[in-house]
Design a protein around this nucleic acid. Structure first.
Lengths: 124, 124
DNA sequence: CTTGACCTTCACATGGGTGTGATAGTTGGA
DNA sequence: TCCAACTATCACACCCATGTGAAGGTCAAG
């Protein structure tokens, strides 16, 4: 598919899709036109990129971990890079921290909302 | 405590503490010097701010939800603002999404790391 | 053949979070 | 008293993700 269709499917503007390419996160083929041609599986990848960006992870890190997030995990391990492993563990641990933190705040918000509702039901 | 001590305790540079004040997230008292004086409870608050920023939440939103994240939740509900409730629900739902997303990627990283380790144990 | 909806590249701007440095006032100890 | 370590404000600059617009190529439908 071309850039416009991918933009619609992922709700990511073409400008950003080109930017992700510039950052090495997606590498679409080119038609004879020069038009970018995206394979279907890139829809998922772009959504993943957006999620990671929204979670505050910079493109540099995304580019590093993205190859390791594929559903086809069994295929990929052929380069026993110890630095890579350390980096992955570090990023995973950061995610774990973020998750715990967000859970705390989710619960706090829930408690507050419930308190509001109770107050409204009682005092109203 | 003064700004330097708070900076050490929270691992947030003074520059940023001043910035958070400018954004209305913390409001330290002032000594006769003009020096900022921070109460102890602000240590927790600053850590919370950092966590939210790291999770990709902008200061504007942080300022809006921060008063609702306190451990003393029971005290605060006196203004039955329906817009506030909607905003809180929206932010909480975003957090829930982020959590689910991060959990997925945490698991994917874990699987990949495990696969690396298995490959290293076998092929080595 | 022209029009309109796409696409290309390039460039400049903006906003938010952060770093850094200049200049100056305060404070406490050698 | 003077120095070192704070603090203050202000300003400029940076990075990164994003918006926007110009100038132009491609293509399908009328």
């Amino acid at each position: 598919m071309r850039i416009g269709e991918l933009a619609r499917k992922t709700d990511v503007p073409p400008r950003m899709l080109r930017y992700y390419e510039e950052q090495g996160l997606v590498t679409p083929r080119r038609l004879d036109n020069g038009y970018r041609e995206y394979d279907e599986y890139l829809v998922d990848r772009v959504r993943k990129i957006r999620g990671l960006l929204d979670a505050g992870i910079p493109t540099r890190i995304i580019g590093a971990i993205l190859p390791c997030l594929g559903q086809t995990s069994a295929i990929v391990v052929d380069d026993p890079d110890p630095g890579l492993r350390a980096m992955l563990v570090e990023q995973r641990d950061k995610m774990i921290e973020r998750i715990a933190f967000l859970e705390q705040n989710r619960d706090a918000l829930t408690r507050y909302i419930d308190a509001m509702d109770r107050a409204a039901a009682t005092g109203d």
